[in-house]
């Protein structure tokens, strides 16, 4: 930070291109206090939450169908592996044509970004449920929905969590890309506004926020979730 401060003050670049650390911090604080940044954070996170929830549900349902039915595995399962390799931002032009340049288009690519990974992880999670657990449950009289709820789902929790973690990373990136190109409020839009107005201090403030949110989600939320399960199950102590 000191280096940043010094190089910025000594460099020939004007302030709006290479703002100093103190300047960025000042913008960050005033942005947070005035609510401009907070509103953007709220908008971005709510998009992410909605997209992520839809993706998780879709992933679980389709993952279940692929696991359960050979026909679905041969068709949809194959398709998913192919589609998975397309970065979800590539869908944006299509999304704009379908939904227009609005929240829906962004939500669409955010959801898509997480869905493939969730499907793949849910499928392999279900497939890897030890046959012993399945036999135990059946022998004790479990079947149908109860069997899914009390054996298949909990037994694949570790894999589902790591799926969530990867899916989160994908949809977070998709969200930023989508917002940058898209419309409405959001962190990506704020970045774009900062660029358009030549406010580099705002751009860097938003970048810091993005980094902080990413780190919190990944290291605090998902890692902790993973550790908790591992500790409880005794996978790793």
């Amino acid at each position: 930070m000191a280096i940043w401060e010094v190089t910025s003050r000594l460099s020939d670049l004007p302030d709006f291109m290479f703002p100093s650390f103190t300047q960025v911090m000042a913008t960050l604080f005033s942005g947070l206090i005035s609510g401009q940044i907070l509103v953007a954070i709220g908008a971005s996170l709510s998009r992410l939450l909605i997209g992520f929830t839809i993706a998780s549900i879709l992933g679980l349902v389709l993952g279940y169908l692929i696991w359960r039915y050979k026909l679905v595995e041969d068709t949809l399962g194959f398709l998913v592996t192919a589609l998975q390799s397309i970065p979800s931002i590539v869908w944006f032009p299509l999304a704009i044509i379908w939904f227009g340049l609005n929240d829906f288009a962004i939500l669409f690519i955010v959801t898509l970004g997480a869905t493939w990974t969730m499907i793949v992880n849910a499928t392999s999670g279900f497939k890897n449920v030890p046959i012993l657990y399945q036999r135990v449950a059946k022998s004790l009289g479990s079947s149908g929905i109860h069997f899914l709820r009390t054996v298949i789902l909990p037994a694949s929790v570790p894999q589902l969590i790591s799926g969530l973690r990867i899916a989160w990373a994908f949809s977070w990136r998709a969200l930023m890309a989508g917002e940058l190109l898209g419309a409405g409020v959001g962190l990506g839009q704020l970045l774009e506004a900062g660029r358009a107005l030549g406010q580099m201090d705002l751009v860097i403030s938003v970048m810091i926020i993005i980094g902080v949110i990413g780190t919190i989600m990944d290291n605090v939320l998902f890692l902790r979730l993973e550790r908790n399960v591992e500790r409880k199950w005794g996978i790793r102590t």
């Binding site: 030890p130 059946k138 005794g234």
Partner: peptide, 18 residues
């Protein structure tokens, strides 16, 4: 099919870790 009138004790315990 399976039913709880016949319960199996397997060679491995197979307890649910969760």
């Amino acid at each position: 099919g399976s039913g709880s009138d016949r319960v199996v004790v397997f060679q491995e315990a197979g307890l649910f870790p969760w």
